[in-house]
């Protein structure tokens, strides 16, 4: 119980952060055509920002299920790596049932906090850590979805930028700090712009375009600028 409460406390900052991020997801989801409970369920069942955003884009464009599956796979592939890292860190009492349930909550931020903890991570601690982020993600989405329906048109149009603003807030500091990330991200953006505007390539749907850009640019990055250090990923 003590461990659970410690985790609960450590998750509070993430929960507050998620409240605001998921608010903009809720706004984006209703403006792309989902109703409030549809947006809410997407958040409750996925708990991931970039994947969900790509998901509602594919829904709005009536993309194929294959496209949906591949986009979620590529965008969320990093979680596989995080789960493997987290596996080294959990204690022996972290049984199969715990893994099946709590593995769902392995987000970028929860992972980062769990990995920064001194010593091993117990299932009680990890469960506590996940509570407030999950609630924040859920209620933020609900609030955003409801507000999206009642705000005036020019305000909700302007708020359409919010989720992109957050993406920019994630990539720009990393690009500023790391020259390799700068080059590879610019490469991905360049490919994305080319796919969008070049005649003949415009037939590629937006979901597949993101997959192509991400895989191609990251592969170039892995070959040209492999990351040498063995420290934990905290992205």
């Amino acid at each position: 119980m003590k461990q659970f409460l410690q985790g609960f406390k450590d998750g509070s900052a993430i929960g507050i952060g998620y409240l605001s991020v998921s608010f903009t997801f809720g706004l984006a989801a209703v403006s792309s055509g989902l109703c409030w409970w549809e947006a809410l369920l997407v958040s409750m069942m996925n708990l991931t920002s970039a994947g969900q955003f790509a998901g509602i884009t594919i829904m709005a464009a009536a993309g194929s299920y294959i496209e949906m599956a591949i986009s979620q796979f590529v965008i969320n592939l990093r979680y596989a790596l995080m789960s493997i890292s987290l596996l080294q860190k959990v204690d022996r009492e972290f049984h199969m049932g715990h893994k099946l349930l709590l593995g769902f909550a392995n987000t970028d931020e929860i992972f980062a906090v769990a990995m920064s903890r001194q010593g091993e991570v117990s299932s009680q601690y990890f469960a506590g850590l996940a509570v407030l982020p999950y609630l924040g993600w859920t209620f933020g989405t609900l609030a955003g979805a409801v507000c999206g329906n009642i705000l005036p048109q020019n305000v909700s149009d302007a708020l359409g930028l919010a989720i992109y603003g957050m993406f920019i807030a994630i990539i720009v500091p990393a690009m500023k700090k790391d020259n390799h990330i700068l080059k590879i991200t610019l490469l991905a953006v360049g490919i994305s712009v080319a796919l969008y505007y070049l005649p003949g390539l415009q037939k590629i749907s937006s979901g597949f375009a993101v997959i192509i850009c991400a895989v191609a640019a990251s592969a170039v990055g892995a070959v040209c600028f492999p990351v040498e250090d063995q420290t934990e990923e905290e992205v």
């Binding site: 990093r78 992109y164 990351v227 992205v235």
Partner: peptide, 27 residues
């Protein structure tokens, strides 16, 4: 290290490609 590096770049390339040029049509 190549697989690790590939996965380390993924979040940034995904977000970069999702943002541009779509963001210019967001409002």
């Amino acid at each position: 290290k190549y697989i690790r590096s590939f996965l380390a770049y993924i979040p940034y390339t995904v977000l970069g490609a999702m943002t541009f040029p779509a963001v210019f049509y967001a409002t």
